[in-house]
Design a protein around this nucleic acid. Structure first.
Lengths: 249, 249
DNA sequence: GGCGCACATAATGTATCCAAAATTGTCATT
DNA sequence: AATGACAATTTTGGATACATTATGTGCGCC
């Protein structure tokens, strides 16, 4: 079991994963009875999960017509990168004024961790998850140093936009990764020296380029991004709940 | 009546108003039974409203302990202004590339409307609401011209931070308003000429100054911001629903 | 007299039930 | 055969009942 304590919390995460991973397809109707059955809960907690997801933008809702997996256009994705670039650039600017010994050290440790993972000259599949963790950690650390909770909040919600999340990255071309991690180096150094504006500029470009690169990748290898939904990804491990049954007819 | 069609939508708005206006005080416990009774609905739609408000940040929630009106520190408010300044500045930069005849005209009409309202040399109380509408309209128009839905989404959610919303403004000093509206003039002109970077700079300062001014106002006239909750602001106009009652006690 | 445990109470969380709305399918009419 | 109205069915929305978790109180024990 995960450490989510109440079922809405739990199933929210579950459904979010299903949507981001493509198991639930954009536009698909989220049938309350069926979903509740699959997840082994009743409709009440499911509905709270769905309204939460609606607010966070992953799900759309129409009055008396129910919930649907929200569809994102490429322009939505592009917009998410644009805003993320600005927000994280701002985070750099702010973080520069809040640097401490400990903060500096944390950033450099993360960067070194990245160096270790990339040192073989390629990113092996088993290092992919650690690298992603390092990457998320680096960006998160800066947003926390910025000491402005809104930045982190909004960036997190942008990570809910399917292709804008860090789960899709460009592992095809090692040079791109290396260069991207080089940005991390420079950002860390700039922050350590209190060069907030410089760090911001590098960060803006760091993210802007990621969008550009995603765009070219999408055109060259579109199949990489069309996830085929696995059959019954949502069926719960717990026995499927026995539903109310009328005595007889 | 508002045009909210379903009861969660309706009561969400109702509770949001109550919180932003100060009728529900920061930190106050949101008792489900009592609130549902006051609003004349059952706990089910109330809970969906509360989870929605939780997601949008106005309400906090603890597992099995219920909902509370979220408390904001001044630093939260300041952070909201900071981020809003960046987001709306970005909106200007983007809008500059999307200007059309109609867009230009819309902005100038809004600015002229503001001129009319300020022409008496002071802002009379009955013009306060129209001026606020004009102001919101102006900022919204630019965000829409930016054609990046995330900006508008996030800025709207920042307006949920009590003192960061446009409902609190500095009507004490007419010169401040006049100068603020002068910013609108310059922003409109800059955008019309395609000077995105200039518009962005003005907008950033426009909002940054609003924070600074709020800060000084808070120190000088703190009583203006301590709203005394009206006795039973939430009791519904419709007859209060008769709740389940135990036989006797 | 203070601390802690146990029970009572109250409030939250979830399931079920009922009502209202929407969708679908059928039939009659043109 | 196509279209529109109407009925049947499905599905959602809301209310209530039930279960579970927190909390407050009192009693006993140390």
């Amino acid at each position: 079991m995960t450490d989510a304590h109440t079922s809405p919390e739990f199933v929210t995460e579950r459904i979010r994963e299903a949507i981001l991973s493509g198991d639930l397809r954009p536009g698909e109707k989220l049938h309350q009875d069926k979903l509740a059955d699959m997840l082994g809960i009743s409709r009440t907690p499911l509905r709270t999960a769905l309204t939460a997801l609606t607010q966070s933008g992953l799900v759309s809702y129409e009055n008396n017509r129910g919930f649907y997996v929200r569809e994102f256009s490429f322009s939505d994705v592009a917009g998410a990168f644009q805003v993320r670039a600005e927000l994280e650039a701002t985070a750099c600017r702010l973080a520069a004024s809040n640097m401490s010994e400990a903060a500096e050290q944390l950033l450099f440790e993360l960067v070194e961790e990245g160096d270790r993972l990339l040192s073989p000259g390629s990113l092996s599949p088993e290092n992919l998850v650690p690298y992603r963790r390092m990457n998320v950690g680096f960006h998160t650390a800066i947003m926390e140093l910025a000491a402005n909770p809104w930045i982190k909040t909004f960036v997190e919600s942008l990570h809910n936009v399917p292709l804008a999340s860090d789960r899709v990255i460009m592992w095809r071309d090692f040079y791109v990764i290396r260069r991207s991690h080089d940005d991390h180096h420079r950002i860390a150094r700039a922050l350590a020296k209190g060069q907030g504006e410089r760090a911001a500029a590098i960060m803006r470009e760091h993210i802007t380029f990621a969008l550009e690169h995603l765009h070219t990748q999408l055109e060259e290898y579109p199949e990489d991004f069309l996830r085929v939904p696995t059959a019954d990804a949502l069926s719960s491990k717990t026995r499927t709940r026995r539903r109310h049954r009328r005595p007889a007819a």
